[in-house]
Design a protein around this nucleic acid. Structure first.
Length: 324
DNA sequence: AGTAGCACCTGATTGC
DNA sequence: TGCAATCAGGTGCTAC
């Protein structure tokens, strides 16, 4: 569910609230939320408890807390990461309250992290960080860090070129200033898959999910099933710019949400859903040409596109196709 | 190597 | 009304 703009909204919110705090204790309410860690709940708690959160970083939809020794000073590199993925329905919620006054956890709360926060806005010295996840595809994880291939900062919210080992195979995201555009476009144009499946491939350019894939393809007037190898360099470039543009715009409005399954760390919804042109508009008129927006399953994902504006083949390089 | 298919979950909605 | 089928914003493993 949460794509780059939503995850960045959460990351920025977390950064402002939990940077500098120390993990006092952890309450895992559903063991499977730390299933990636071989040692399970005990190991997770042991590795995280007592650590100081130095920063909250993100690449694409993958997020991590940089952990340092509690008495660390200066800018020494993190020694470990508490990584997190929101999956389809994950949320972080922060309560600025004394631990014993925190509200009862939400029924879908999978983990509750108690933080010692000397600078808590309320002055209580405490924060409670809840990881809530209805569908349980999200997770928390603890792991070591590896270096980026290019030596540049690993992603948003960090100036270190270190990222969690499990994130090393994820490409830089569409809004990362260190994204290698030439190489990314070349990889987008390779292979037989439909272009929508390719732009959802997080190992090439990360951060694009099902909503923004449909929006970017609509903006760039490209059919979701156009084979990657049939994309011109110019079309690929237009598509990347469209994805960057739509996600930056969504980010400026706090992300997209249709319901309470996506909210920021304060429990508030974003407003971008009212700006969507294709996603969720099956059967409605395309705002550009008036044709009905189609809805079908492509690559296992619900896909929305305008059959008139978005041709399966480039108009000058192949037969026209109604997109049926 | 590249790609398709499915598995992993819970809850809301739809259709019979 | 009741129950089964379907669908949801993601990732990663397996098998071809």
């Amino acid at each position: 569910m949460p794509e780059l703009p939503e995850v960045e909204t959460v990351r920025a919110g977390l950064e402002s609230l939990v940077s500098g705090t120390v993990v006092e204790s952890v309450e895992i309410r559903r063991d499977s939320c730390v299933r990636l860690l071989a040692g399970g709940v005990p190991e997770f708690c042991a590795l995280v408890t007592g650590e100081r959160i130095r920063a909250v970083a993100r690449r694409g939809k993958f997020m991590w807390f940089e952990l340092v020794a509690p008495d660390a000073t200066g800018a020494e590199p993190p020694r470990e990461a508490l990584s997190a993925h929101l999956g389809m329905s994950g949320q972080f919620r922060v309560h600025d309250t004394r631990w014993d006054q925190a509200p009862d956890p939400h029924p879908h709360c999978r983990a509750r992290i108690f933080l010692r926060a000397t600078n808590a806005p309320s002055g209580s010295g405490h924060l409670v960080l809840d990881f809530i996840d209805q569908r349980t595809f999200g997770y928390l994880h603890t792991e070591g860090l590896v270096s980026t291939a290019d030596g540049a900062p690993a992603g948003a919210g960090t100036h270190h070129s270190l990222l969690p080992a499990s994130v090393a195979h994820i490409g830089r995201d569409a809004l990362d200033p260190n994204l290698d555009v030439e190489q990314s476009l070349a990889r987008w144009r390779r292979g037989s898959r439909g272009i929508k499946q390719v732009i959802l491939d997080q190992s090439i350019v990360s951060g694009i999910g099902n909503i923004y894939a449909d929006e970017a393809l609509w903006t760039a007037r490209i059919h979701p099933e156009r084979p990657a190898h049939a994309m011109s360099k110019r079309q690929a470039s237009t598509l990347l710019v469209a994805a960057q543009s739509v996600m930056a715009s969504a980010l400026s409005q706090g992300g997209t949400s249709f319901d309470s399954l996506y909210v920021n760390v304060n429990g508030e919804s974003g407003y971008f859903s009212r700006s969507l042109e294709a996603y969720g508009r099956g059967g409605e008129a395309c705002s550009r040409c008036g044709s009905a927006i189609r809805l079908a399953t492509v690559g296992g994902r619900s896909t929305h596109w305008c059959a008139r504006c978005q041709r399966r083949w480039a108009p000058r390089s192949g037969p026209l196709d109604s997109g049926a």
